[in-house]
């Protein structure tokens, strides 16, 4: 079904000159061609370091709402020498990027991304065995973290895939973030005991839309 439909759509698209979508380098195929993607197919792959989500974290993500909302699912890794035990982190990020600036023909800047993440760490040494403590002995979770993030991005808009018109993009991003425990420490010291800058973490990453 699909193999027949695609050439038909390509032919149909050939006649009319579709308007260039805002974040695509060149003429793309009409929406119908792209909607051939199965719903579960991620729109991008991501690779990052830092941000409390791994020395290396890799994963995939989806974009919604004209690419202004996105969610990434990452699996991160920290070697034993940096954390005392080898850690595997599963993370979920939600991001909103309201603005996009076309600074050059093939370069787009997303000056602001705000979002939040949630992460679960596997492999910590002492993470509350059953019966080790009475309930609420520690009010916080050892392995579950969440926090805000804010960042920005530069995107190179490559030519779309010739056969399908899929837009291709390569983005470099940074994110400043924190986590619930650092923020709690800040909030309980309102007389300057901690500076806001001491709570921050940095993530650097690359994202490829395909």
């Amino acid at each position: 079904m699909k193999t027949h439909l695609l050439p038909a759509l390509l032919l149909a698209a050939g006649g009319s000159h579709a308007a260039t979508p805002p974040d695509t380098a060149a003429t793309a195929l009409p929406r119908a061609a792209r909607s051939e993607r199965p719903w579960y197919r991620p729109t991008h792959l991501a690779l990052q370091t830092g941000g409390g989500l791994g020395m290396v974290a890799a994963g995939a993500g989806y974009q919604f709402s004209k690419n202004r909302l996105e969610t990434d699912i990452l699996i991160g890794y920290v070697p034993r020498r940096y954390a005392g035990s080898a850690l595997t982190l599963a993370s979920l990020k939600f991001m909103y990027s309201p603005f996009r600036l076309r600074v050059a023909e093939k370069v787009q800047v997303l000056p602001l991304t705000v979002g939040a993440y949630f992460s679960y760490t596997h492999g910590t040494l002492n993470d509350e065995l059953k019966g080790q403590y009475s309930s609420d002995y520690y009010w916080f979770s050892t392995d579950t973290r969440y926090g805000p993030l804010v960042g920005g991005r530069v995107t190179y808009l490559a030519a779309p895939v010739a056969a399908t018109g899929q837009p291709r993009k390569l983005s470099f991003y940074y994110e400043l973030g924190s986590n619930d425990l650092y923020l709690a420490s800040y909030l309980t010291n309102r007389n300057g005991g901690l500076r806001f800058g001491q709570l921050l973490t940095l993530a650097l990453g690359v994202k490829a839309d395909f």
Binding site: G50, G52, L53, G54, G84, T201, L204
Partner: peptide, 9 residues
């Protein structure tokens, strides 16, 4: 700032 995990020491 490039923290790998809160457990990163």
């Amino acid at each position: 700032l490039l923290e790998f995990s809160p457990n990163d020491h």
